[in-house]
C-alpha cells in the first residue's frame, strides 16, 4: 500500500467517523423523538454501509495486511477487535456518566433515555471486549483468566453496570427510576478508578505485561481504522437505542403535557460530543 493511500485512509476514516458522529447527534435531535417527520432512512443506511465497509476493511487489514508481531506472533491480531471494543465501552460509559450528572442537574427525559442507551451499548462492547481479552490470554499467558488488573477491573465494571441495568428494570415509576439510576450511575462511574488502583495494588506481586510495546506504524493505522469503524457503529447503536428508550418513556408516562420531554436546547448535543 502506498504512502498516499495510507494517508488517505488515515484521514478519510477519521473524517467519516467524526462526520457520522455529527450526523448521529443531529438525527438524535431531529429523528429520534417520537412522531418525528424526518426521513432518516437514506442517512442511516449510508452510515451503516460506511460502518460495515470500514469494519471489513479494518478487519482485513488486521488479519492479513499487517505484519505479525515480534513476540506475540499472529495472536496479537486480536487487539484490532479487542481494543476498539474497550475504547467504545469506555466512551459510552463516560457519556453515561455525563447523562447521569446532567439529569440530576436538569430533569429531562432525553438525558435519561440517553443514559439508558449508553449503559446498554457500553455493556455490549465491554462484554465482548472482555471475552476477547480472555481469549487473548489463553495463548499469551497460558490461561484464560490470570487476574490481570485490566481484565479484573473490566469484569468488575461490567458487573457494576449490569446492576445499573437491573435497577432500571426493577423500578417502575419512570421519574424515580431516572433519579435513582442517575445516582447509581454516578457512584458506579466514580468507582471505576478506585477499582482500577485497588486491583493493581492487589496484583502488584506479579504484574503481567499485557500490551505489545513494539508497534509498527501499519499496526497503528489498522487499529485506527477499526476504532473509527467501531465509533460509527457505536453512534448507530446509541441512536437506535436512544430512540427506543424515548418511545418507551413516552408510552410509560401517560400524560404527555406533564412531560419535560420537549426541553429545547443543546443539552443532548453537548453530552454526545
Amino acid at each position: 500500500m502506498s504512502d498516499l493511500l495510507k494517508t488517505v485512509l488515515q484521514v478519510g476514516s477519521a473524517v467519516a467517523a467524526l462526520a457520522s458522529v455529527g450526523l448521529g447527534v443531529w438525527l438524535g435531535v431531529k429523528w429520534a423523538p417520537p412522531r418525528s417527520r424526518v426521513n432518516a432512512r437514506p442517512v442511516l443506511l449510508g452510515m451503516a454501509a460506511l460502518a460495515l465497509a470500514l469494519l471489513v476493511l479494518g478487519n482485513w487489514m488486521g488479519l492479513v495486511w499487517t505484519p505479525s508481531e515480534r513476540e506475540m506472533g499472529d495472536v496479537y491480531r486480536i487487539i484490532y477487535v479487542h481494543v476498539p471494543a474497550m475504547w467504545m465501552a469506555m466512551l459510552a460509559l463516560v457519556v453515561n456518566f455525563a447523562c447521569c450528572v446532567g439529569y440530576l442537574l436538569k430533569t429531562s427525559w432525553k438525558t435519561d433515555a440517553l443514559a439508558e442507551a449508553t449503559a446498554e451499548v457500553g455493556l455490549l462492547f465491554g462484554t465482548y471486549g472482555l471475552v476477547l481479552g480472555a481469549i487473548w490470554g489463553k495463548p499469551t499467558w497460558g490461561t484464560y483468566w490470570d487476574w490481570d488488573p485490566r481484565l479484573t477491573a473490566m469484569a468488575i465494571m461490567l458487573v457494576t453496570y449490569v446492576a445499573y441495568m437491573a435497577l432500571r428494570r426493577f423500578v417502575e415509576d419512570p421519574e424515580k427510576r431516572a433519579v435513582w439510576s442517575s445516582v447509581v450511575g454516578i457512584i458506579s462511574f466514580v468507582n471505576l478508578p478506585i477499582v482500577w488502583f485497588s486491583v493493581k495494588w492487589w496484583r502488584s506481586l506479579h504484574q503481567v505485561q499485557s500490551t505489545p510495546k513494539t508497534v509498527d506504524p501499519d499496526m497503528t493505522l489498522a487499529l485506527r481504522v477499526n476504532a473509527w469503524a467501531s465509533l460509527i457503529l457505536l453512534t448507530l447503536f446509541l441512536l437506535h437505542r436512544y430512540r427506543t428508550a424515548l418511545a418507551t418513556r413516552e408510552a410509560e408516562v401517560a400524560l404527555p403535557e406533564a412531560l419535560p420531554t420537549d426541553v429545547p436546547g443543546p443539552n443532548r448535543a453537548s453530552e454526545v460530543a
Binding site: I156, V159, T160, V162, A163, A166, L167, V184, I187, S188, N191, I194, V195, F197, S198, V199
Partner: peptide
Amino acid sequence: PLLLFPLIIP
C-alpha cells in the same frame, strides 16, 4: 447485594 457488592470490592 447486586448493586453493593461490585461497588464494595476495593
